[in-house]
Amino acid sequence: MDMVKIKDLAFEYIRRDEEGNVESINRAIDGVNLDVKKGDFIAVLGANGSGKSTLAKHINAILYPTEGTVWVSGLKTSDEENIWEIRESAGMVFQNPDNQIIATVVEEDVGFGPENLGVPTEEIWQRVEDSLRAVDMLEYRSHSPNKLSGGQKQRIAIAGIMAMKPQCIVLDEPTAMLDPDGRKDVISTVHKLNQQDNITVILITHHMDEVIDADKVFVMEKGQVVMEGTPREIFSKVDELKRYRLDVPQVTELAYELRKKGLDIPEGILSVEELVQALDKIRG
């Protein structure tokens, strides 16, 4: 069974004036079809305003389709009785770490989710410990969250989701406010959860280098999915990506530029090692 299945999804933000008359309609999602298999690591790219966040909010049942259907673990998000089960199985991490932390002690913050689910106290503490260990933050369990760095706060937010034992985590630009070290820690934490705990990951980002290890990449533009493929397939199309206001990692761009100048370098180079190898071969 698919973790997430999205069929012919459309979503409209409708603005009304004081009398309730429709002032404007913005079709933020316009005919999206998308399947995510259990255990997949999916990345979603797209310009500001392309519909990525709106799409993400459908997976967590924060928004419901105007048209089409979204299933999470086989449950329809538009059926109200499914909401809590869906939110338990698909957790969401947002951009600003400061907006997501509510308690004054790390372990209490992580325990907030399972407590709300009515998990027995004994088990809450076990889950808190396991989740903090999973994000490498166990030693901070009795610290105050506001003394932590942005990257550490995001890992606490991820632990808070993990404590609810989700099958899937949706991360909406989780590294936009972090320094390079914090970014690296968050991304490697997410990869670890994906590999060790088989958590399905849906990562929305503007940082191209965070995408190269994903199983599959979707590119959105004006509410539609316009590209879909492995990172190598996607990053082979440098010109097309730039048309969608996107970019490629520097090494990919350099390889592309050298190729344009006539060097025999394969398309879609993703790492420094690959480029060095390709140039070494040319040198003979």
Partner: peptide
């Protein structure tokens, strides 16, 4: 941090 959260072209 004038570019935090913006897409690459932005």
């Amino acid at each position: 941090e004038p570019t935090a959260g913006l897409d690459p072209l932005g």
